[in-house]
Nucleic acid binder design. Sequence first.
DNA 1: GCGGGTTTGCTCACTCTTGATCTAACTCGT
DNA 2: ACGAGTTAGATCAAGAGTGAGCAAACCCGC
Lengths: 213, 213
Amino acid sequence: MSTRAKRDASLTDYARPSVAVDTAVLTVRDGALCVGLLTDERTRRRRLPGTFLHEGEVLADAVRRSLREKAGIRDVEPAQLHVFDAVDRDSRGWVLSVAHMAVVRANALGTLDALPVPDAVGLDFDHDAIVAFAVERVRADYADRADPSGLLDEPFTIRSLREVHEAVLGHRLQPDTFRRRVLPQLDEVGAVRRGGVGKPASLFARRPSTRSS
Amino acid sequence: MSTRAKRDASLTDYARPSVAVDTAVLTVRDGALCVGLLTDERTRRRRLPGTFLHEGEVLADAVRRSLREKAGIRDVEPAQLHVFDAVDRDSRGWVLSVAHMAVVRANALGTLDALPVPDAVGLDFDHDAIVAFAVERVRADYADRADPSGLLDEPFTIRSLREVHEAVLGHRLQPDTFRRRVLPQLDEVGAVRRGGVGKPASLFARRPSTRSS
DNA sequence: GCGGGTTTGCTCACTCTTGATCTAACTCGT
DNA sequence: ACGAGTTAGATCAAGAGTGAGCAAACCCGC
């Protein structure tokens, strides 16, 4: 086919893959980073929620639809991770999966089962790899910004903020170093927490510019 | 359609988009970060090289095929950037584009025209956005690692390494601060450059662990 | 051969960051 | 009411990083 003929060719002249979206929904529970999983009824294997892209739908809408329909999850801001394109990744045929991630509060996981990330192995398809991408991404997001995904109710204390960061990052943080790093990103609410043991802590909220875009 | 019926459904029960790949090929020339562009013969608008995905092909192979066929570029390691999925992004129909980037030496751009990144505006489709993604990515790659994409012949001097980094990052670097940061990633070759004005500089090669994976 | 100019790479003073320690402010049990 | 224990937040000493300036090592013109 000549260059001109190729350009004028109909889109249907080329075979097209099916396009799916799969989403690693992450949360923090019991001080640990967890991922939400479904169990396939037939194979009993665990996997991430996903769906095929419908005609005329953008990827983020497909993600939202799949999380709502498969898990009862609403109000998520998914982020693209990577396209998984192994030609044999799905036994039904040629399927590309655009992997996404979303971070939600533990009480917003709907019907997904929360598994600590180290336990989320042996998933169907290439979902282990998708989880790994998502974990790397959320850890990068939390490295320098104060709770970018809004896992904490506001206002919060520096200690509870640090504990969320330690859960996401998977390692301990030096309290005062952490405090000095996040203070510029926070507004002191002016009240002081009472009811716990020890010196009452100041309460903070995130400044608007640190909220996840 | 019941859940069981949906699972057993053929892939062709869902409409599928065309999937394209578009690639921002970046290089450094005359001390500036540049992107390689084609000019559309019909519309005269500039754009990135791209192609539709062929049946059974993985994305990286499609990228390589398109760069070879459209620009005579070989031996590239493309990296995925983002999927562009606006339903009206292409007048021919529903097309998703998986944007990629590749970094090559200036003499490997084939028939692409090299434009300094600030001049690469008003491109067709959403290619301006693709270039912006690619620039952000290459700048992140070059922030802490010594010439990860191998733009320099080896061995090289610290000064020429710094000049490449300044071209990619788009700002000046303090010579000695830069030197101390990269030295742990380099092996001194043991020779000294001669023929230039000034004290002869030592020659270096990158340690294998800093090469781009 | 020497002086001027340029470049490399080292030195040093200063600034910034870190983390342990200390003081302050609370709760709880006696 | 007070002491013990815990937590928050400030302080300070030590270490790390930065960048200007300097000495060394070249090339080039005279």
